[in-house]
Simulated assay, not measured.
Amino acid sequence: MSPVPSPTSDRPSDYLAADAVVDHDHPAIHALLGTLQPASDDPAARAEAAYLFVRDEIEHVIDAGDPRVTWRASDVLRQRVGICHAKAHLLAALLRAQGIPAGFCYQELSALHGLNAVHLHGRWSRLDARGNRTGARGEFSLDEEKLAWPVDSARGERDLPEIHLAPSAVVVDFLMTAEPGPGWYEKGLPRTL
């Protein structure tokens, strides 16, 4: 059973900030938002359009066998590739640029897996835009969790319930210092926060 998402701040507005990683004030972020076609102007429809773009249009480096390393949201968008954490940075930027509070969540699987939480309809829901190749099954849902990977507690895996305001420093530091090349993510991707 998944944990109940637990925000580290009680104010959803705290989950709208831009920074060096979630640079939602970047012109490319706003240009993309102008091209997305949500089903309606409802915030949930706009969130779903952003989610589907990140999940389906941004390649996951492992699935694509791509040697590039991205970490800043605008760079993930420009290069159209990123590991789960980088894709979560872009999704947060796309949501926050629209005034939709978004945070960062983690799972301890074989390595630390990054995903998002979004605040809509008065509550938090976790979303995983990792990409649905190689067995992953993430879907947009505000009513029930449909994350890319189920947690197997028998293998020592666990969901971390916290919704962080900013991406984990350990993840950002790793991504900023990783050397591009084949299998770069195998060389020290954090296993825990």
Results as ranks from 00 to 15, higher is better:
Q107W: 07
K146M: 12
L91E: 11
K87Y: 00
A117I: 13
G82R: 10
A169T: 01
F104D: 03
D63N: 08
H121C: 14
A148D: 06
G99L: 11
E162F: 04
R130P: 06
R72N: 12
E108Q: 11
I62D: 07
L165I: 00
A73W: 09
L160M: 08
P167H: 01
I83T: 00
A129F: 06
A92L: 11
L94Q: 08
G114S: 15
G181E: 01
K146V: 09
L91D: 11
A111T: 15
S168T: 05
A166T: 11
R96C: 13
C105M: 09
G135N: 01
R137Q: 14
I83V: 15
I163T: 00
A129K: 05
R133W: 13
G138E: 00
A111I: 15
L175I: 10
A154L: 13
L142R: 04
R123L: 03
E179W: 00
R78F: 08
A136I: 09
L147E: 10
S141E: 09
R80Q: 15
S141H: 08
S153A: 15
R126N: 06
R155F: 06
G82C: 14
Q79F: 15
H85S: 14
N116E: 09
V171K: 03
D63F: 12
E139R: 13
P161L: 01
A178S: 10
I83A: 08
R123D: 08
R126K: 07
T177D: 15
R155V: 06
G135K: 04
T70H: 07
V61L: 03
N132W: 03
E144P: 01
K87I: 05
A93S: 11
L160P: 00
S110V: 15
A92T: 08
Q79Y: 14
R130W: 13
D128K: 11
R130E: 08
P67N: 01
L77D: 03
S74A: 10
S110C: 01
L95S: 00
H164W: 06
F140K: 01
D128W: 06
D66A: 14
L77A: 03
G181S: 05
P180W: 00
Q107F: 10
L160W: 01
Q98P: 06
L120K: 06
D63T: 12
P67L: 03
N132P: 14
A92F: 12
I100C: 11
R72F: 00
